[in-house]
């Protein structure tokens, strides 16, 4: 009887022992790799996005856009953002072929002139259409873009989370580091703090209303970014996520920009 009990206990101890041998950096990376693995295989995705910009006086303005993304094996994803509101920029489209560490390829389509303009992707830290989200916050999240460090485990709002620090490795980031509260069940962030180049807390992102799609992929219904230094905030309301729509490279090329709706 005793002998029979011993083996299961040993099996329990072995993985724990491995965990103790792992450094905080290794554990942080392992969590990022697991998150990436779990979010692989969605092939393509479309969603409608409403963006509400609020200034420190409480005045708000709205933008709506459609987002399409294509998963690319061994490279960053391709994405196409098509603006619908405000109406003066309706039809403006932003195409990005992202890469892990090498600069992204980006084009902007200006419908009034019917002009496709290759734009610099060096602007990572600048605001995306006047919002509190920087280009780098909305870009494809590849594992290689950061180095990681596991800080501790915590519980926020009843959810068990890993608290991980990550440090951008790509050029022109506006951040020294980010701290991410990664849900242990979903492997998706519930909260992220962004520290500016002077290592001062700049922004906090809270993601909520997660739903699971295709029995695997968790997506937030709401993301709220607060800028602590300016008092401004931006809410993203995500709607109508759809996966595996049969999109391909042709839906993310320069020709598509001219007819994106």
């Amino acid at each position: 009887m005793r002998k029979n009990c011993f083996l299961p206990i040993l099996l329990l101890i072995l993985p724990l022992h491995n965990a103790f041998a792992e450094t905080a950096e290794e554990k942080g990376l392992a969590i990022a790799v697991e998150a990436d693995k779990r979010d692989t295989g969605w092939v393509d995705q479309t969603a409608d996005l409403e963006m509400i910009l609020t200034n420190k006086h409480g005045e708000s303005s709205r933008r709506t856009m459609k987002l399409k993304s294509l998963e690319v094996d061994g490279d960053g994803d391709k994405s196409l953002t098509i603006f619908d509101k405000p109406r003066d920029i309706k039809g403006t489209a932003f195409l990005s072929h992202t890469h892990a560490l090498k600069p992204d390829d980006q084009w902007l389509y200006l419908p009034a002139l019917k002009r496709i303009k290759r734009i610099s992707s060096a602007n990572k830290s600048g605001p995306f259409v006047g919002s509190e989200f920087a280009y780098e916050d909305l870009s494809s999240q590849e594992v290689e873009k950061y180095t990681y460090k596991w800080l501790r485990d915590e519980t926020i709002d009843g959810h068990d989370v890993f608290v991980i620090e990550r440090f951008p490795q790509y050029k022109n980031s506006g951040y020294t580091r980010q701290i991410s509260w990664m849900d242990k069940e979903m492997y998706q962030p519930r909260k992220v703090e962004f520290y500016d180049r002077k290592n001062t807390l700049l922004k906090t992102l809270v993601s909520s209303d997660y739903e699971q799609y295709l029995d695997q992929y968790w997506r937030p219904g709401k993301m709220e970014m607060v800028n602590h230094q300016t008092g401004k905030k931006t809410d993203l309301i995500w709607k109508d996520y759809q996966f595996k729509n049969g999109l391909g490279d042709r839906d993310f090329d320069r020709n598509t920009l001219k007819r994106a709706r």
């Binding site: 600069p103 290759r118 734009i119 610099s120 060096a122 602007n123």
Partner: peptide, 9 residues
Amino acid sequence: LQATKGNML
């Protein structure tokens, strides 16, 4: 022709 080199076009 356009060459996009970082912040320089």
